[in-house]
Design a protein around this nucleic acid. Structure first.
Lengths: 221, 221
DNA sequence: TTATTTAATTGTCAGCGTTAATTTAGTGGT
DNA sequence: ACCACTAAATTAACGCTGACAATTAAATAA
């Protein structure tokens, strides 16, 4: 056994501690992306951080909390890019929807494990509820997109009555489509019966985006 | 510590062993449904079975294999009910789609953990690939529904060109919708901004089914 | 009745999240 | 420059997990 720890140093200044915590989150992200939820252990993370495993508890109350902290960070990154699309849009209402949808599907496909930790896998259970869990609200990402819808309603560009329903519906469509794309992209899958059942990821995405586009068009006044 | 094991008996006849294995799957299902993926341990299952934990390995190569075996069993149950709908249908093409979709969403909502083990959570990893994993094909459930589509194509009731795309699309819609419904049903969730963002599960389902219905209608010749 | 087979057992392993007790590096006050 | 204090870091241990090896003994076949 070689000693992997670095020359023992302590992050005492609040700024230094924040920095250290941030590094923990970054290493945690990498660990998760590389080895998945089952390879994501505090011991492995500690080794990467060159610190003892129990020292992580000076930064986080539980594995669950760490998990949620990473999720929140991913959502922040997601929001940032998402906001950019939303705020700089000069396109039509339909086009902005198309851009948001495309971004969502590309984001999921670019790193499915990241997508999974954000939208699919629930955090490991813990006895206590920590600060990150209290802070975290599901459906948070939704708000950014909802803003677009509301602005359009206010500007009387679209029908008001079913806008919210449609919004959640499209969110569901994208959530499901991202998963179907992933399953389609796996080599393992081979349709059992006929030849014509085959479908490529590109084909599927094109179809999905067109469906969304057509549906949103109907909403215009 | 009380000894929970039953008076030691052995299931040696092939029939008896099959029976015993079936009981393992049934208890496993219950355990999973009751305590979720994290409460689902071989030791807890063994206790329920009143046997030693390592004896489970006489029935299954790994926890992963057990997981997949349970998943397969759930799919069989799903297929059975699904087939009934498909095979006894006297309705229009649109109505049968509506029935399939309704069944899917009701199935998911009736027991979300069951739905999750079938469609969302991936089985825990294992070093070796067992017989159940070899047997299991993802997208298997899809075939039953595909049959309906193909029959309709053959009967020249619907457009052929985009039938398969639409099929996968609707599958994605349902997969996503089931998850949105679940999130909406959680008490935790409270929208942040305006009042009108609220939406009930019933509202959402109604909307979703209507969307599917409208979309399938367009496919008719 | 005996030999064989194999279900079921005990014991052990490394790995996991978590906690308690302890050490010691970094900070602020004098 | 020194000292006291705080808290980041350590070591050690707990009970849990999936898995494996060796052993026992119940059910079957000869």
């Amino acid at each position: 056994m070689t000693d992997n720890r670095k020359k023992s140093t302590r992050a005492r200044a609040p700024e230094k501690k924040k920095e250290q915590f941030n590094k923990i989150l970054e290493e945690g992200k990498e660990l998760f992306i590389k080895y998945g939820s089952h390879g994501f252990s505090l011991r492995a993370l500690a080794k990467r951080m060159k610190m003892s495993q129990s020292n992580l508890y000076n930064y986080v109350q539980s594995k669950r909390e760490l998990w949620i902290a990473i999720r929140i960070k991913y959502f922040k990154e997601f929001q940032e890019k998402f906001s950019e699309i939303v705020e700089t849009h000069k396109d039509s209402y339909v086009d902005i929807w198309l851009k948001m949808a495309t971004f969502f599907l590309e984001f999921a496909a670019a790193d499915y494990r990241r997508f999974a930790i954000m939208f699919l896998i629930s955090a490991p259970p813990s006895e206590k509820i920590g600060p990150f869990e209290k802070k975290y609200k599901p459906f948070q990402l939704v708000n950014q997109a909802l803003l677009v819808v509301e602005q359009a309603i206010d500007a009387k560009k679209i029908k008001k009555d079913s806008a919210i329903e449609l919004f959640y519906y499209v969110y569901g469509v994208l959530l499901g489509a991202a998963q179907v794309e992933f399953q389609l992209s796996k080599k393992i899958y081979q349709p059992i019966t006929a030849e014509e059942q085959k479908i490529s990821v590109d084909q599927f995405r094109k179809f999905t985006l067109e469906e969304i586009s057509k549906r949103v068009e109907q909403e215009l006044l």
